[in-house]
Simulated assay, not measured.
Amino acid sequence: MSRARDPHRSFFPFGNPFRMISPKGSQMTPQLLRILNSFETTQAERLKKLIPENKDEILSISWMTLAMESLCETHNDIKTLALDIELPVSHWDEKWIDVYLDISVKLLDICIAFSSELSRLNQGHLLLQCALHNLNTPSPQQFVRACSSIDGWRRHINSGNPRIEKCGTILDDLLGSLDLPKVKNSAKGKVLMQAMYGAKVQTAFLCSVFAAFFSGSAEKLLDLDVADTYLWAQAFTSLRHVVNQEIKVRFSNGRFAVLRELEAVDASVKKLYPIIQGELDTVEKEALLETVEETSRTAERLSQGLDHLAKEVDGFFRVVLSGRDALLSSLRSGAIFCDTIPGVNMDEQRVK
């Protein structure tokens, strides 16, 4: 494995993972091969959709929302695949179960950290609303109050989040989990492990991008290299290259924020602040009104985007949690994994 700050380390310190999950005596049937190819082809198409024509779209909340949606879909596909190959949990190797449960805990922790940061950013919206409200009836006192609220917004946005700072350690642990357990004489196990590997790579990378966005540090980006034996490898490599390169350029330019919507708010605030610092008699009312309206629009766009993204993060949290609960329930009952997910129709899962 290697990270952006340590490019000399091999991504596969344990050797070729594809060889590890392809032992002799575990030949795939045509049906199992179709299931695996379908999963990997779908994942490849999903990754391609995250590569926009305009690179600026990568640095937006709308792109982050799409990325989180893709994670939900991939993890749901893992549960569907586990059902389609009809591999009872009782036949799972203990190492597979340990890996799945360990990863799920880490992903839940990451979701909690991301949710806390989105909530923190949205709290700044209240400070801007307070500032704009004070400017509805301009007066020297209201200008002072508006300036105070804007100063509070700046301090709030620039403050750190301890939970986000811990994401680096969690991501390191996720990288360690990419080491695939050996599969002995089990074609179905091979399919399951190879699919889980694809899901883990996509998850670790996209979570590292989110952590970089929220922390303002390119050190959290992951430069993952994958073997070209996977159908999704080329799409992933292209996505990784475009996203990492664009974010690093953004950081190297010393921009206020990586997120486009947040930077738009900051630009509006920078135009508004000098206006309300002057004497009331010298303020051009038309310029003040236009700048207040612009700040209000950009702030509302940011707040709505954060709300939508928060819902997707919560959705991913629930997907991970339901999968974990289903596995634990199946272990107790001996059922096929994901038969017991509450509110999920098995027929719907098969055709998803």
Rank of each mutant, 00 (worst) to 15 (best):
G198L: 04
G160I: 08
L126V: 04
S159R: 06
L206E: 05
R120Q: 11
Q142P: 01
G168F: 04
S149D: 09
L135H: 03
F114M: 14
I170A: 08
V183Y: 01
G189I: 08
L171P: 03
G152D: 09
G198A: 07
S115G: 11
C167I: 15
L178M: 15
I157N: 01
N185H: 13
K182C: 06
G160F: 04
A195R: 10
G160D: 14
N158E: 11
L132K: 00
D179L: 11
L171A: 08
V191S: 11
T203M: 14
K184M: 05
S159A: 13
L175E: 15
L174G: 03
K166V: 05
S177E: 10
R155N: 10
R154H: 06
I170K: 11
H125N: 08
V201G: 06
A131V: 05
R120G: 00
R154C: 02
D151L: 03
L128Y: 00
K188I: 01
D179W: 03
N122V: 02
K184S: 10
V201T: 07
P162C: 02
T203F: 12
Y197W: 15
M196G: 12
M196W: 13
E117L: 00
A195I: 09
G176T: 10
A146L: 03
S119V: 07
L178I: 12
K182V: 07
R145H: 09
E117S: 02
P138Q: 05
N185Q: 10
F114H: 13
D172M: 13
L126F: 04
G168P: 03
S148A: 12
V201S: 08
G176R: 13
Q123T: 07
T137N: 08
C147G: 07
F205T: 05
V144I: 11
R154L: 08
N161I: 02
S177P: 00
T169G: 05
